[in-house]
């Protein structure tokens, strides 16, 4: 969780060098939004598999499997814990960004809509995290896999780089990947259309984002319930 915070601090000063003074607060706002999304990704994709793999290593998962409880009680608890942790981290990143001068053009309903796009990010990240925690048995492996997926998909989906600089196939990926699409929607709502190279708020794009984020979550849950709790 430290990395998004560090990058908000570094990015707020080093990535605004050549920009006109009046635009700088909005660039900082965009950076804060991106790092908030990244913090949510790390929460789901790395902390969640770490908790699963850690419990597997320390015997808690065996203990839970031996008890007369259903897997949903386990993964619901894990996902709720990740949501709490992620929201806390996201709020912290945003608070630091605002303290460093991040500003947004949005007001009222747009802010609430932008907050709504936090949830596809959380659900998609939790889905990926459940998959990583199910398939990677070792604690360090699960953590590194989660961080790796978060960093690589962030890079190739344009989370860390302007969308227009991406090659065409990655631009397509950026629109399909629910996390980058949700991030673009947040940036569009909070900082205005000039900060995003396409309109992510078309009904088709929003539907795709929501459906795919839930799909990732459901695949993660099914995989975890079937294989994570599988009697070997």
């Amino acid at each position: 969780m430290a990395w998004p915070i560090i990058w908000v601090i570094i990015g707020s000063f080093s990535f605004t060098g050549g920009a006109p003074q009046e635009v700088v607060p909005y660039i900082r706002g965009s950076i804060a939004t991106t790092m908030m999304v990244f913090a949510l990704m790390i929460g789901g994709m790395s902390n969640l598999p770490a908790s699963i793999a850690g419990d597997r290593e320390n015997g808690l998962l065996s203990k839970l499997i031996s008890m007369p409880i259903k897997p949903y009680r386990d993964f619901t608890g894990r996902i709720l814990a990740v949501i709490s942790l992620s929201l806390l981290a996201a709020a912290l990143v945003m608070a630091i960004g605002l303290a460093l001068g991040a500003r947004f053009t949005a007001a009222g309903a747009h802010i609430l809509q932008a907050i709504g796009f936090v949830f596809p990010v959380i659900f998609a990240s939790a889905g990926v995290g459940l998959m990583a925690g199910t398939l990677i048995k070792n604690l360090q492996g699960a953590i590194m896999t989660g961080v790796g997926i978060a960093v690589v998909t962030s890079a190739i989906s344009g989370l860390f780089a302007p969308y227009q600089f991406l090659p065409a196939p990655l631009q397509t990926f950026s629109r399909v990947y629910p996390i980058s699409s949700a991030q673009a929607s947040m940036a569009y709502l909070l900082a205005g259309p000039n900060m995003v190279a396409y309109n992510p708020l078309t009904s088709g794009q929003v539907t795709l984002t929501i459906v795919l984020s839930f799909a990732l979550l459901i695949v993660g849950i099914v995989l975890y319930s079937r294989l994570g709790w599988k009697l070997e």
Partner: peptide, 18 residues
Amino acid sequence: PAQAKKLIGYVPQENFSS
């Protein structure tokens, strides 16, 4: 055993308490 979990108490070798 899967149908008798209510009757079974298992303490794995590892320290599983938090």
